[in-house]
């Protein structure tokens, strides 16, 4: 029988622990496919976060590190500096990257660290059961903002892509979403570009992926996708915020 589809070899056969309707699985596959398509299998080293993707080291079929909460960019820095030829990526959620790891991501970008960061923004802490994140929208109810996020009390959500785009060392910053097939294809292109940016030595690259969390949002997967479109995309506009990859070509 002819093989018409084969799962990428850059994912292990381990069964994902993610909830039904969660988009982590899609993002894992996009990242794994890009690594395989670019022929980076042997060079790839991933750094998993603390958060829902904490077990990413079980799924990505390459050398993997598990970092302390928020510290993935520092760990990736240590790997990349000791193995400059390696293809190093971090995979981080919004609590990990935008809250406890804000310093590490800002300074990795600031140094122009030649790593690729996949930033999964679902506006909530998933693994600990739905607490408020720096990216939680104003009015959004979580287990630690039961009356809805109060702007006067907690401030407005952080737009990480816009912030990092102001940093000189950031070479490629794009925000994508997984709400339509077209957008999933766009997301894969962005991820590929972020890896190309690293491998050509241009500097720090990050792709922010707007993602859903049906479980902690209390919505069905379909409703969650709709909520993302109606609430997240207006506040977190999609697009390229920084692109230095064409410079010097």
């Amino acid at each position: 029988m002819a093989v018409v589809f084969e799962k990428t070899k850059m994912l292990t056969d381990a069964v994902f622990h993610y909830c039904p309707g969660c988009t982590h699985g899609v993002i894992h596959r996009l990242v794994a496919e890009v690594i395989e398509e670019m022929g980076l299998q042997e060079k790839a080293v991933g750094v998993a976060p603390v958060g829902c993707a904490v077990f990413a080291y079980n799924y990505f079929n390459c050398d993997m590190f598990e970092a302390a909460h928020g510290r993935a960019p520092a760990v990736a820095t240590g790997i990349k500096r000791s193995r400059p030829d390696a293809c190093v990526f971090t995979y981080q959620g919004d609590g990990d990257l935008a809250s406890i790891g804000a310093a590490e991501i800002v300074h990795a970008a600031h140094r122009g660290e030649k790593i690729t960061t996949i930033f999964v923004n679902n506006a909530i802490y998933g693994m600990t059961g739905g607490q408020m994140a720096p990216t939680t929208l104003v009015g959004q109810k979580t287990t630690t903002s039961p009356y809805g996020r109060d702007e006067a009390w907690c401030g407005k959500p952080i737009r990480v892509s816009e912030m990092l785009a102001t940093i000189e060392g950031a070479a490629y910053i794009e925000r994508v979403a997984l709400n339509t097939n077209a957008n999933i294809i766009k997301a894969k292109k962005a991820i590929r570009k972020a890896f190309e940016c690293q491998m050509s030595g241009k500097g720090f690259a990050m792709v922010e992926v707007l993602s859903t969390c049906p479980t902690n949002w209390g919505l069905s997967p379909v409703e969650a996708m709709k909520w993302l479109e109606e609430n997240m995309i207006p506040y977190y506009p999609l697009g390229v915020f920084k692109d230095k990859t064409k410079e010097g070509e």
Binding site: V47, F65, A67, A68, R71, A74, V75, A76, T77, G78, I79, K80, R81, S82, E104
Partner: peptide, 8 residues
Amino acid sequence: NMVYGAAG
């Protein structure tokens, strides 16, 4: 944490 990455 950079030490952790390099040590690994």
